[in-house]
Design a protein around this nucleic acid. Structure first.
Lengths: 203, 203, 203, 203
DNA sequence: CATGAATGAGAATTCATTCAT
DNA sequence: AATGAATGAATTCTCATTCAT
């Protein structure tokens, strides 16, 4: 397996650069992140990036996809937790907290790409690649919600909209956590979110 | 009042340019919105913009502030609705729907600035100006929540985090509404949001 | 005619830049001529060039076309000289000498574009624009040759190939003239070329 | 002779790379021919080229020299044909046709280097190396012309300029041949060129 | 010897900002 | 006050060249 070593190096470089890109985008924002700074952050020369990514768009896209697929995987696993909807919901919220905690920087990239910028052509490209990931996550959750509705666990309402409400509401709380210097224990936030969704806020 | 007329013209120009900026940013996204396109959209020369705004950042900032203060005013009015927390909540959600419906384009600017881009200096500046607006809205809602808690209307929990959860969760649903070609009636979405928050989703 | 002045300025800029481009290309060669050097030579900023030309290709193309159409015009006028083929031939050679003398720098651009470089797409583009100019010049001369053949002034042979032979043979002599520090009188070279073509070199 | 084998390999490598360079330059043009493509075409690694050639300029130069010395040899042999100037001339034209036919790709390199590009330093270098080759060919022909003049075979005129006229005029016709999908028989073009030069075009 | 990954200087292009009219 | 032509800093991307393996 003489190939193996080269592939490992290749993998490693791609990883290094993607991570650097994530950090720089997180620091500067999508638009202000320059190839030079990403290269510096990754500890490679500008030209090296182009050996592994076609162009700037390609790098950003791949970086995003990679992070999203991580979030995706975590949420999917959480959704497969055995038990009631409540159990699943708590698992999902915990998964999101875990993800954003591990990828503190990511949430700005996440925001940047969910509402893509650039000309129409670029937007179409991003939509093609990035939106589906988000949408499919919403849909997965909507499906679990629907199943719970049919089992009579929760009230009937539009499952897609409810999924959105849950994802974004909890993301906001989680992002605040991430920005917080001294966040409360995870359980407190999970309880706040899951409790509110399940039982409402009425005393 | 000879001054008056000049002032009116001044006001009008500022308005025209701000609206143009909002449309262009909405169309292209923050980074791809050029001064030239904004000038064209406003029907003035590029140089004219600089008579009314210090630079690009200033224009964006003022545009954002202006729109936010509109949203702000609406939410504030809603919060002053007489009645229970439920009444206030429904009024707030309705106000947000009304705002985003009237300013369909705004939400991208809103997104862009909530998670500002640019170099560190720009970021600090934006934080100083824009974050407070958002924060103050969250705080106002948190205050109303706290009052309701004290009146025993709702359960005790972290009011700031709850406010965030409500604002973002409902914003997401509302943004989806705005993007939706044929959205359901306003009341349905208000019911979904307010109902979930107040009573939870458990049957 | 308020427009007139602006148009004059516009024309003037285009001229200035084209001339600068010609000088720089002549000096450095097609490939090594940078936008920066062209801008410097023209006494404008790099960005200014892009106000008048879409991109580098556009500038080179227009520069070439402009020079070619000058050469073209001169040769055409020469071909319309009244008289025998000999008279026309001498006029054409004189026109070419005049052109290259006035545009000493041009011949390298001329060479560069007759045998275009770059990728297939660029080549196609150049072929579309530049080759036709050259080809049409060859064809015009070929037509005059054919007419002379029919009048019995000259022997029958392939007119296109003969035209090529005449144009390139004389161009080479003329270019040598241009490079020559102390060239012989024009008449001597015209005589050499026209005499050789018409009467051959046999004593 | 242990050296011999190594030398043979060395020679072979140099040959392979030079030929590849010629094909690539012919295909892409001087400026767009990259070391990578040349390496690929030669079936070696980029770095290998630098073992045999100092740098890109060196490679191009040696490639040119090698091809030119081939053309040179053929023309020299033709010039040594026994007989009148007419016989020699026909032989030279035939030699050129033969050469360009065998090296179809070469003419673009030929053009590129006759009118060299690049910065002043590169130009000086190329002039030093390449121009002499061309010049010496012109001079050799000029010498033969002069001899013929002295023997009274042809009229007195500037032999250098006449040589240029003959070389370029015939090259143009020959290049057209090469580009031609279905060229006329060689003899026809030889006749056209030699006939015109010797006897002129007057009937 | 041969390789090809890594480098970084250098080129084209864009666009916020200025300033003469 | 309004204009928009001119500017040049900043950015992306390419490719000749080097050097560790």
């Amino acid at each position: 397996m003489a190939r193996s070593k080269e592939e490992v190096v290749q993998e490693f470089r791609i990883h290094t650069i993607r991570d650097a890109a994530m950090r720089v985008i997180a620091r500067r924002g999508m638009a202000a992140a320059t190839m030079q700074e990403i290269a510096d952050e990754a500890g490679v020369a500008k030209g090296t990036i182009y050996l592994y990514f076609k162009d700037r768009d390609d790098l950003v896209e791949k970086t995003f996809e990679s992070a999203m697929s991580d979030l995706h995987k975590r949420v999917d696993e959480a959704l497969e937790t055995e038990g009631t909807f409540e159990v699943k919901l708590r698992a999902v919220v915990a998964a999101q907290i875990g993800f954003f905690q591990a990828n503190r920087e990511f949430f700005r990239l996440y925001i940047s790409l969910r509402y893509p910028e650039g000309n129409a052509q670029q937007q179409r490209r991003q939509k093609r690649h990035c939106q589906p990931q988000y949408k499919s996550r919403v849909e997965r959750i909507a499906a679990v919600i629907e199943a719970a509705m049919e089992r009579g666990e929760i009230r009937k309402m539009d499952p897609m909209r409810l999924a959105l409400f849950i994802i974004e509401g909890s993301s906001a709380v989680i992002i605040e956590r991430v920005l917080d210097e001294a966040p409360p224990p995870e359980e407190a936030d999970i309880e706040l979110i899951a409790g509110t969704i399940l039982g409402g806020i009425r005393s």
